[in-house]
Design a protein around this nucleic acid. Sequence first.
DNA 1: TTTTATCGGTTTATTATATGAACCATCGGT
DNA 2: ACCGATGGTTCATATAATAAACCGATAAAA
Lengths: 266, 266
Amino acid sequence: MSTTDKALELLRLFTLNQPEIGLSDICRLAGRDKATTFRHLSALESSGLLEQMADTRRYRIGPFVLRLAQLRERSVPRRETVRPVLAHLAEVTGETAHVSLLQGGELVTLAHHEPKVHANRVVIHERALPLHATASGNAVLAFVDAAQRKAAGGDMRAFTDHTTATDEALDRSLCEARRTGFGVSNQGFELGVIGIAAPLFDDSGCVAGSVAVASVSARITPELVALIKAELQQAAQTISESWGGTIPATLTAAWGVAGTDGKDLR
Amino acid sequence: MSTTDKALELLRLFTLNQPEIGLSDICRLAGRDKATTFRHLSALESSGLLEQMADTRRYRIGPFVLRLAQLRERSVPRRETVRPVLAHLAEVTGETAHVSLLQGGELVTLAHHEPKVHANRVVIHERALPLHATASGNAVLAFVDAAQRKAAGGDMRAFTDHTTATDEALDRSLCEARRTGFGVSNQGFELGVIGIAAPLFDDSGCVAGSVAVASVSARITPELVALIKAELQQAAQTISESWGGTIPATLTAAWGVAGTDGKDLR
DNA sequence: TTTTATCGGTTTATTATATGAACCATCGGT
DNA sequence: ACCGATGGTTCATATAATAAACCGATAAAA
């Protein structure tokens, strides 16, 4: 591991709970020598990545990161960060993958990718997705606050016989989504289509959208569901990170324990 | 210079005009060896400060900066970053210093600092400052867009005989502010008080407020004005940087040529 | 087709830099 | 005065950074 790596690792020690840390604490947390750590900190400080408070001598994240973040936000469109992830998702699952963004209470599709392997595949519409009837919508609703959840309950049109068109049915579905960490829609939006979705988070710390795989129901097997869920986890992780967000601990926990329990889907 | 410094310097090469750079270009821009630069870039990439685009192999600012920036914004209140700067400003000039924020067309005082040396000093009011009549207001107005400038022209109350209370007078004053890089109010808000102010910029790239020194007019000398201007330059630089902004080139140029021309103030 | 130039990346002997035990100065509490 | 923290510094030693040369791929030029 290079010295630069070691120095940059120190940045990870700063968190919302502990945004300012002194030299000795940093040494303890990093398990490193004091002289070395001091040099690392000095380097980070001289670059503006860290700054030292004059009075307490503690260190905290410096102003330079703001400039870098601004540059990142202006130069890297979200659609582009998502594209390679969707391509991978579609390829390994053999199904259609898409990412949607929660904008003003609506779920709009940001990008999608269709697999090459199958002749019959799910085609993504460009209009807004109904929150109550889709896997993506459920994945998002399961993690928004009560106000937004309630707002979504206003218009619950039944697209098929399977649509969760009542408040009770939707609540059950969301509860399940929170338990497993995935939103699922078994032909609730379109007959013959099963969707599985994971929520996405951005730098605001809130749900920003979802990544989903829409499969042809005839092809679904427990193994495929397990594969899709595993890949969705990975994809949600990657995309959220590239948006400056983090997957909440409750969600990773849900993913951890849920395992491969897609037997009841068939 | 440490290796970490050298690696982190590379981050400065990325700009809005050139947000993505390839290895060879980075070498040229930094004037460094290719192998070395590659190692530096790899280190920055593995930490998430940079990322490499899979297709073009070029590098750009990575997602990790978003997390750091979020942390910075949440944990470092603007008032606190300003306090030590104001203390220094008040001490070396012997006059009252304050920072104001442009919020919704109003100029509100964020923090102020009074010197110990003088018995008679300027006391800062807590209510919003009039944009047309104060040095702070002029410093800000000189760098906002036409729409905001026009909006400020709506209410131009005359606080003293010296207030720039007409559109023409204000325009002249703003023109002068753009030329010298400082907003000045000679007893325009309060009799016996001369204010000198410099604009502040944040990560949005726009004027975010101003830093100002309010002096008792009886004490003003050309030397004091020169000192105040020099210190204000420094302060504006420091504060803007800590807010993720940069002083525009036009402003540094104005500061550069204007020099010490406070003779007409007395 | 061959040639040439450029790209991103890798190897390796040499050299400069990072490392950490011991040390210093300072502070707050007993 | 002492004790145990703190942040910071020194210097012989060990380790990691360096840069010339090299590799393979790609693309335009001859």
